[in-house]
């Protein structure tokens, strides 16, 4: 979707799938030169600490490749579980749904473009 990659997770994540996703995503970001990654986890009912850490890793990795990651549509039960586990996921941005996540990414890109344009003038 333009400069944004959209990842929708539909099945229960298990560890191997998570690492596969991580690899795949890194490749896709560099191939497509995406500026934003949107991960939709609204279908995910269970998240363990490994998966949570993986999301953090993906966000960091994407940042290295100059892309912003937004996690969208987290279920209330998942949020509670993560908080109880003490996982705050500070490095990851979140949004309520895909639309809002997209808006967030767009706003950030516009900002960057404005920054880029500014010194040239």
């Amino acid at each position: 979707m333009g400069e944004i990659l959209l990842v929708t997770i539909q099945v229960d994540m298990h560890d191997r799938l998570a690492t596969a996703l991580q690899d795949d995503l890194a490749n896709r970001i560099s191939v497509t030169r995406a500026r934003g990654v949107l991960i939709d986890i609204s279908a995910l009912d269970v998240v363990d600490s490994f998966i949570a850490r993986m999301f953090g890793d993906i966000a960091q990795m994407a940042r290295v490749l100059d892309a912003e990651t937004v996690l969208v549509g987290m279920q209330p039960s998942v949020a509670i579980t993560l908080v109880e586990m003490g996982v705050a996921m500070t490095g990851v941005r979140t949004a309520l749904n895909v639309e809002k996540g997209m808006a967030l990414l767009r706003a950030r890109m516009d900002e960057e473009r404005a920054d880029d344009d500014a010194p040239a003038e």
């Binding site: 937004v70 996690l71 969208v72 549509g73 987290m74 209330p76 998942v78 949020a79 509670i80 993560l82 908080v83 109880e84 705050a88 996921m89 979140t94 949004a95 309520l96 749904n97 809002k100 996540g101």
Partner: peptide
């Protein structure tokens, strides 16, 4: 905790 959880939800 509540604040963190709402942030996680976006």
């Amino acid at each position: 905790k509540t604040v963190t959880a709402t942030r996680l939800m976006g």
